[in-house]
């Protein structure tokens, strides 16, 4: 993936007429690749640093992505549940004699996570 990305970026830059930048990207990539082969710790260092940056970017991307997942799925479903008065958590005090509920034994499901 690390090898493909710079080449793909260079290709796109070349396609959209940013030839100088594409050449620069390719030159940098091959220089780093060559250095990493000759002196592996350099490649490892670059890998570690880029992983860190990737994780930070990933964290923020995840927040944004989860925000949209929430807005698009959880929120409307939640509103719908309120409209149809579904109260799975028994948040409203039920008018019952006992809060005990019958337990359904499913002894054969041990291989499943549900």
């Amino acid at each position: 993936m690390c090898s493909i990305m710079p080449i793909a970026i260079a290709f796109l830059l070349y396609k959209y007429s940013y030839k100088d930048i594409a050449t620069y990207v390719l030159f940098s990539f091959f220089t780093i690749a060559l250095l990493s082969i000759i002196i592996p710790p350099i490649g490892f260092y670059i890998y570690k640093q880029s992983s860190k940056i990737g994780k930070i970017i990933g964290k923020y991307v995840a927040i944004v992505a989860l925000f949209f997942v929430y807005i698009c799925t959880v929120l409307p479903t939640g509103i719908l549940m309120k409209i149809v008065k579904r109260d799975r958590l028994r948040l409203k005090m039920p008018t019952v004699e006992s809060y005990w509920q019958k337990y359904e034994n499913k002894n054969s499901d041990y291989e499943y996570q549900f």
């Binding site: 925000f67 939640g78 799975r88």
Partner: peptide, 12 residues
């Protein structure tokens, strides 16, 4: 998930 839905939008 059920809890998040029950408390939406405060469960964001």
């Amino acid at each position: 998930l059920e809890t998040a839905m029950a408390y939406a939008p405060f469960s964001l």
